[in-house]
Design a protein around this nucleic acid. Structure first.
Lengths: 197, 197
DNA sequence: AAATTATGACACATCGTATATCATAACTCT
DNA sequence: AGAGTTATGATATACGATGTGTCATAATTT
């Protein structure tokens, strides 16, 4: 294990912090490398000595946050899925509002979001699939993906509309619209008759 | 109703077709305006006489695609084939597979996707909101957004996994997981007791 | 046939990305 | 503490993409 040069750590930290700060300020796409290096008070050329492009810096800088979020998701999936857990998620989104906003709205972060969604869905499959009913019309993989996507979407909608409802209310909505609705849909088997409401 | 100049229609068609062709070839982000105009055999400046940027062209072209989809649904509905509208959507996705894939996976198309989702949600609000029950726990705006997002997500999942189920099966899944599930969740009112499954 | 207008060709400005070189300062290692 | 190593800053430069302006010409409309 080779020791990392102090200057390298310093530069990379400055660049990473600057990207985050500028993203919150003007959005990922609108941040230029020149912006980053100026904000970090580092020579323009230095950027390319560390990263190939903006995406590489974002990924590197976001890795720790992804881990934190993954842990949070892990908690949520492992916990007996209930009101408390999902409310914590909304609270977390509210507390890290700006960052969540950027992550949801910046095109450049799509890959990261997809990754998170997949991780969430896979955890759901591992923890909940055994309890799912046999012979459902809906493959559990689809249901898990649906839940993961719908959850993110709900948080996204909430932030996009400036949090018009309380975290309690959103937790309730999540329970009914996403969790309970999906679970009930899973109960439907091939042989079960389909009747209109 | 003013008549549209033939040259305008010709140019816009050429530009739109070129963008689609190049997207499928190298991905949306990697297509330059110069690429488009060269492929269309049109002067570079002409692009800006019609569109502000790439996004605007893509949106315009996708609107045509949606119109086409809507027409197909109308035709088949009139022909009384008894095929659910959603199934036609899955068939449309299958037939225009490459385009849908690019649309779903290219980071650059996020804004356009968001726009499409909003349009879909708003349409749902206009057409279905009057029939929604009073005093639901779930605001109809959220339900509409949920349906729109979940529908896109379902198609996305299906294409991403190389269409492992038939369009009939996917239509059924959509009906249960998205439409029926959401509608039933909307029935829940504040006063209604909440019981665990 | 005349008026209108979309287009092509060319020039040009601006901006962001990316690389090369070299002196200097900061750091590591012994 | 000193010698060797290496990251950085400054500068120059090339390149590609976006975007605007002008004017003659060709296509279209009325």
């Amino acid at each position: 294990m080779t020791k990392v040069d102090r200057r390298i750590k310093r530069t990379q930290r400055l660049l990473g912090d600057s990207l985050i700060a500028l993203m919150l300020e003007k959005g990922y796409e609108n941040v230029t490398i020149k912006d980053i290096t100026e904000h970090a008070d580092v020579a323009y050329v230095t950027f390319f000595r560390h990263y190939k492009d903006k995406d590489e810096l974002l990924t590197a800088r976001l890795n720790e946050l992804i881990t934190e979020l993954a842990e949070r998701i892990n908690e949520l999936a492992q916990a007996e899925i209930g009101e408390a857990a999902i409310q914590i998620a909304f609270e977390h989104a509210r507390d890290n509002q700006q960052l969540y906003r950027v992550l949801f709205s910046s095109p450049g972060t799509v890959r990261v979001r997809e990754e998170l969604k997949t991780i969430y869905a896979e955890r759901l499959i591992q923890t909940c699939a055994p309890r799912a009913p046999e012979g459902s019309v809906i493959p559990f993989e689809i249901a898990a993906n649906h839940i993961a996507a719908a959850t993110f979407e709900l948080i996204h909608w909430w932030l996009k509309h400036d949090m018009p409802y309380s975290t309690q209310k959103m937790g309730r909505i999540y329970l009914e619209l996403v969790e309970r609705a999906t679970w009930q849909a899973l109960q439907i088997t091939e042989t079960e008759p389909y009747s209109e409401s």
